[in-house]
Design a protein around this nucleic acid. Structure first.
Length: 873
DNA sequence: GCGGACTGCTTACCT
DNA sequence: ACAGGTAAGCAGTCCGCG
């Protein structure tokens, strides 16, 4: 690939001008992060992003050079053009004058493709266009003119990445305008080790494994970045300023970078108190003119390859752009592009961390649901143990002394979200970019279905597979053959083995290491291999379903997901635990295995998700059907070995006191009979079960306690109950043998009785009695029922409080007609004591039963008394 | 008109 | 816009009941 000599500058002229201006007065930015002089050559840089440049009509790559902290622009000059495919012959298409007269129409070519749905080679017409919008994106585009269009919904720059085999996130060099990958060396010893570890893999899988390892062993650069936060005046109380209008002044901007530079830019106004010069090590600067302030912010944005915000797409960055336009800045001088759903930067990459942390996979699999509240505060508090103080007051009633640190704090937290644990989040993002082949901007904004889609499309193009149209997959593969247990779900899922209630000592928990990805690998599952067109494959059946799987071809998702699974389990997970490696290296392996976990956990889910472009319901139900079969057969085998299965869920079985040898026998059996890897996940000194599924307590040999699904641990329960429950688990953690239980029982009785007495004597503080329930949509949208937290929300709104979806509503159960009062408005005299005693009972009963403790006896009243008292209150 | 049985809605959790 | 399965509690409805 060569760069047109005319276009060998790597920065837009306007951008360099602005950047040059930036040279003045920013000597404090250390090290110097931006030089306006464009250079032709880039020694080595990491590809962060790709886009389409409408003026040059070419794909544009952005590379980050760690040495200088700069972004380099590289424009395609190979003449690559956007296109889509048609099943009509070129002659037929030529007769369509609407197409041939289309202003964007360029030419038609014939291409050979492999059609995975038909499992045969096909000839397609490739309709080439002058620009991406002519293919699709405006009314009357080419994809709307022809009867059936393939590959017409792919964004142009993604298409460019696939066709050129570009690897986002990887290092490249540019010499004399030629871009080429920098192939990092993988040491001989690592190569040998890899060969050994993956010796048993089939050739097809080895190729993929080598590809992943090449991507993942490449060093991850430290990326210079700026975190930004703005504060806007508001003339109306409790009104969040509208970023589309941008009618209010920007009064404060904080800028914090990964080199430790911290600045707060304040607008000088009357009545703001003393002008402080610094907040800790942050410099505070004052601007008389908002225009000057914005100019300075724009310059800073231009000085960094990556700009971080928390909700910048919907607020900060958008506001900065629209405010600038309102103040008369020419559009070209503002380094921001406002899109429909995102705000991008003309120079660097805007990473909106709100969008990234909002991603359910990141939330659940990367951070084990540690944060639920999707606010900067909520996430920071959960992940960093560091929140900020909420400011109820209006921004414009704050003095400089209050405003500056408040604004600064948000940028610091935003940056910190990417720096904690040795840059965990930044590395996570870069590794995901490498695996999914998505530009960084898109990676942080898309959900897993977008990630997996891009990864799969890339593979389709690499293998010259025709990317199927979603409706064709559905038409060829048909509907599901199983019925879900839950009303409204599409197909049957996993099974849960009924727990054996009571206390069990020496429980070993065995589970299948990433079960669903293993199944997808071992059983060759992919949308094109399930229910394939070959008659000879119909004998390779899926248990409990009428479906079959292909015996002839390797499934594409089986290869991709299966190989990722092997790489995670046998390389990165192992290396992350390898004590012979340095802690820093171990940490890196840990990041990669965590990233792989995120992707693997989602890989099955997308198959059954309508939003996924390769959605295939029979495929999804095949995965769970094989999973059910595996766990059932394993439980059966366990019992035949004389071991009791006390519980099991989806991919795990809990065994009571299994002899070591029998465990080995079982593991070998699953390997031989099911080709699945069973392993000992954890061992409990003892475990406590009630009759409830997904609900148990396990005590480790070291006294640590696992609590799963119990009411007493749930986030919304009153702190008073959660704390009492925690005390109980602490006592149970100290129990070593059945002899210790007697003492534990006595202590637990004491806790429960203590709670009861406190409740009856009204000794609990109101906030300890408050339920904290998330309101998942705006209060007005609850039309079918009005749950208690919504009632409380309404009461709050009546009093002028603002309630948004995602807010946590705190409320107390009361004896008045409504039965609830928001914490803010409640009075301790209104507390419904009887209700709280009920909650005390239901919370503790999940454990008390198994311990042989009776709640009513504990609180020391007979049933009759209980009835009389309950009637009175 | 009242109350119990039932279904549906909502949240939070497990894998 | 990744999946399905489970629990708990409350809201709302239906139906029987002289």
């Amino acid at each position: 690939m060569r760069v047109d000599p005319e276009s060998q500058n790597d920065v837009d002229p306007e951008l360099s001008e602005l950047a040059e201006a930036h040279q003045v007065g920013v000597e404090a930015v250390k090290p110097q992060v931006f030089k306006a002089q464009p250079t032709l050559d880039l020694l080595e840089g990491y590809l962060l992003s790709a886009s389409y440049d409408g003026d040059r009509r070419a794909a544009c790559l952005r590379l980050y050079e760690p040495e200088t902290g700069r972004i380099h622009f590289w424009y395609d000059s190979s003449g690559h053009l956007p296109y889509c495919l048609s099943d009509l012959s070129p002659e037929e298409l030529q007769r369509n004058t609407q197409l041939t007269k289309h202003p964007g129409f360029e030419r038609i070519e014939v291409v050979k493709k492999y059609d995975p749905l038909q499992a045969r080679n096909v000839s397609m017409s490739k309709i080439v266009a002058k620009d991406p919008l002519s293919i699709g994106g405006r009314p009357g585009a080419i994809r709307e003119i022809i009867p059936k269009a393939w590959e017409a919904d792919i964004r142009y720059y993604d298409c460019y990445i696939y066709d050129r085999g570009i690897l986002p996130g990887m290092p490249y060099s540019i010499r004399n305008g030629v871009i080429s990958p920098v192939n990092p060396n993988i040491s001989k010893s690592i190569q040998n080790e890899l060969a050994q570890v993956f010796a048993g893999e089939a050739e097809e899988f080895r190729e993929y494994i080598d590809h992943w390892v090449r991507l993942l062993q490449t060093p991850i650069p430290n990326i210079l970045r700026l975190a930004l936060d703005i504060e806007v005046a508001s003339s109306v109380q409790n009104r969040v300023p509208d970023p589309d209008e941008a009618s209010e002044q920007v009064v404060a901007v904080s800028l914090v970078d990964s080199n430790g530079l911290e600045r707060v830019l304040l607008l000088r106004r009357n009545g703001m108190g003393a002008e402080l010069r610094s907040v800790d090590k942050a410099r505070v600067e004052y601007y008389d003119d908002e225009v000057e302030l914005l100019k300075e912010v724009y310059k800073s944005i231009l000085a960094y390859p990556v700009v971080l915000t928390f909700n910048g797409d919907d607020f900060d960055i958008k506001y900065l752009c629209h405010r600038g336009l309102n103040l008369g800045f020419p559009r070209e001088s503002i380094p921001i592009t406002v899109g429909a759903r995102e705000c991008l930067l003309k120079y660097g990459v805007h990473v909106d961390l709100y969008r990234f942390f909002f991603n359910r996979s990141i939330q659940i699999y990367a951070f084990s649901a540690k944060y639920t509240e999707l606010t900067l505060n909520g996430v920071a508090e959960a992940l960093l143990g560091d929140g900020k103080e909420e400011l109820g007051a209006r921004i414009n009633s704050l003095s400089y002394e209050e405003l500056a640190p408040y604004c600064l704090r948000d940028s610091q937290l935003t940056l910190h979200l990417t720096t904690f644990d040795d840059d965990l989040v930044m590395k996570l993002i870069l590794v995901l970019v490498r695996i999914t082949k998505l530009p960084m901007e898109d990676l942080v904004r898309q959900g897993v279905s977008g990630w997996v889609r891009n990864m799969m499309y890339y593979e389709h193009r690499r293998l010259n597979y025709l990317i199927p149209r979603s409706e064709d997959i559905l038409a060829v593969k048909g509907e599901v053959a199983s019925t879900a247990v839950i009303k409204g779900k599409k197909y049957k899922g996993a099974i849960v083995v009924n727990p054996v209630p009571g206390v069990h000592f020496n429980v070993s928990v065995l589970d299948f290491a990433s079960l669903y990805p293993s199944i997808i690998k071992v059983h060759n599952l992919s949308y094109e291999t399930i229910l394939c067109p070959h008659p000879e494959c119909r004998t390779r059946r899926i248990p409990s379903l009428p479906h079959w799987v292909c015996k002839v071809n390797h499934g594409i998702s089986s290869l991709v997901i299966g190989s990722l699974r092997e790489v995670r389990v046998h390389w990165y997970k192992r290396k992350a635990k390898d004590k012979s490696l340095t802690p820093l290296l171990r940490n890196l392996y840990g990041v990669v295995q965590l990233t792989l976990k995120v992707l693997l956990n989602a890989s099955y889910g997308v198959m059954g998700a309508e939003a996924y472009s390769l959605y295939c319901p029979p495929l999804a139900e095949a995965v769970t059907a094989i999973g059910r079969d595996a766990i059932e057969k394993t439980a059966e085998k366990t019992r035949s070995l004389g071991i009791e299965v006390v519980y099991g869920d989806t991919d795990s079985i809990f065994l009571e006191a299994p002899p070591e040898s029998k465990i080995g026998e079982l593991i070998k059996w699953t390997e031989d009979e099911l080709s699945l890897e069973l392993e000992v996940d954890k061992v409990y000194r003892y475990a406590v079960f009630s009759t409830l599924k997904k609900n148990y307590l396990g005590v480790y040999p070291d006294g640590n306690v696992d609590i799963k699904g119990m009411t007493g641990k749930k986030r919304h329960m009153p702190p008073f109950l959660k704390q009492a429950f925690m005390e109980m688990t602490h006592i149970l953690g100290g129990v070593k043998s059945s002899n210790d239980f007697e003492k534990a029982r006595t202590e637990i009785r004491g806790i429960v009785r203590g709670c009861y007495v406190k409740l009856r004597n009204h000794e609990c503080r109101l906030e300890d009695l408050a339920f904290n329930v998330m309101i998942s949509r705006p209060p007005a949208q609850y039309t079918k029922t009005t749950p208690q937290h919504v009632k409380a929300a309404h009461l709050l709104m009546d009093k002028g409080y603002e309630v948004k979806s995602g807010d946590i509503i705190s409320f107390v159960k009361t004896t008045d007609e409504l039965g609830v009062q928001p914490l803010q408005l409640a009075d301790s005299k209104m507390v419904d004591v009887a209700k709280y005693v009920e909650y005390l009972e239901s919370t503790f009963d999940q454990v008390l039963d198994a311990l042989g403790i009776n709640f009513d006896e504990v609180i020391g009243i007979s049933k009759l008394e209980s009835f009389l008292w309950g009637g009175q209150s």
